[in-house]
Design a protein around this nucleic acid. Structure first.
Lengths: 147, 147
DNA sequence: CCTCTATGGTCAAGCTGCTTGACTATGTTG
DNA sequence: CAACATAGTCAAGCAGCTTGACCATAGAGG
């Protein structure tokens, strides 16, 4: 593969990612929830028994201060709440509220809708192979904004 | 595919995109050029005979004011220059300088390096299929930041 | 040919989401 | 219990974008 092709491949990947983020965001909004794309990534971390602000920051690849601001926003919108942390009086456990879980489901539906559109273009088997390939190259580390 | 799988697929795609952007940015920096990830997308548009500020804004999915600020930055760093537009005295033609073309090549090399790492994980044939699949689902419209 | 509207570009102000730095409260270790 | 580490917040600052206002030139219709 030539270098220029690699850049074209990269551009295609970034363009697809941007488009996907936009579609999910729109889909969530269309279901009556207001939010930013980073909500979804926060929710996936919180879904399993909650997390502290610091853990959330690590997951999202931002400082704990930025994570704290995000949590402020999520609390204000009623998606999460800060509970005292069992076993560490310094920390707080951030957990999803019922509305937060509803918003998570809305994000899942919106994502499924977007992915289904790809399925129509690619066919089911190629979609499966795309999923497998992405799973193998996706980093395990924090999720970071693209630019 | 279940909804939760679709969200996981989406997360994988966004994570891969973020990681890729970071690697290209690092690779470009390691070759002695300072920049932001959006430079690469601007360069691919400018590479073919230049563009006006407004056209660049459309390509990047931002306002013409934001595009103008980006061009200011690129001029300051010596990557592009503003020439009078032949045939429209209102407009300026933004073109790459020699250093801008060098930076473009550096971005291509960095992208190739990152993609090569994927090739080692996936194998060449699967990498080709990934490229084809992405080409088919990538939107034709402007490239947008992921979040 | 001349007005009227559309378009390319810039300037200025403001906003959002992040950063760094400083600080308090609590936990942990020797 | 002294000393250091860690969870969280507050505050200030910054980068990159937006909206709004404006000027210069282009293009269309009388």
């Amino acid at each position: 593969m030539q270098n220029s092709e690699a850049l074209a491949l990269s551009a295609a990947l970034l363009a697809a990612a941007g488009e996907l983020a936009r579609r999910i965001d729109d889909g969530v909004a269309a279901r009556g929830f207001e939010g930013r794309p980073s909500y979804g990534f926060a929710f996936t971390r919180l879904a399993r028994g909650g997390a502290t602000v610091t853990e959330l920051g690590v997951h999202l690849g931002v400082t704990k201060q930025a994570a704290s601001q995000l949590v402020d926003e999520l609390v204000r919108k009623g998606y999460v709440e800060r509970l005292p942390h069992p076993g560490d009086a310094r920390a707080r456990l951030i957990v999803l509220t019922e509305r937060g879980r509803e918003c998570t489901r809305a994000a899942e539906e919106a994502a499924a809708e977007a992915v289904r559109a790809w399925g129509e273009v690619l066919g089911e088997d190629q979609l499966d192979s795309l999923r497998d390939q992405l799973a193998r190259i996706a980093p395990s580390g924090p999720i970071r904004p693209v630019w």
